[in-house]
Amino acid sequence: MNITLSVFMALPEGERIRNKPLTLKKGSTVANAVDLFHISDEWVWMYVLNHRQVVQRKDVLSEGDHLMVFPPMEGG
């Protein structure tokens, strides 16, 4: 199963994940995707699928999904 991952923050070592293609086993969850990069839930405000659906770590991903990870943030 192929998905795309975007993380709107730098990881602790400075790594950035933007529109990164990922291949996961069928039935993989949000947690399975973000755990590959050791993204702690403590840094996250929302996991969002396909730009507008807020999901939880336990939710199952589908082929072609775009998973976005947003940190807590303020005003622009």
Partner: peptide, 22 residues
């Protein structure tokens, strides 16, 4: 670039995708 990674990469538009999703 790490401490302010979101604003550095995206400018103030950084908030727009998150606000829309929320």
């Amino acid at each position: 670039q790490t401490l302010a990674s979101n604003i550095y990469e995206n400018g103030t538009l950084m908030v727009l995708p998150a606000l829309n999703a929320a």
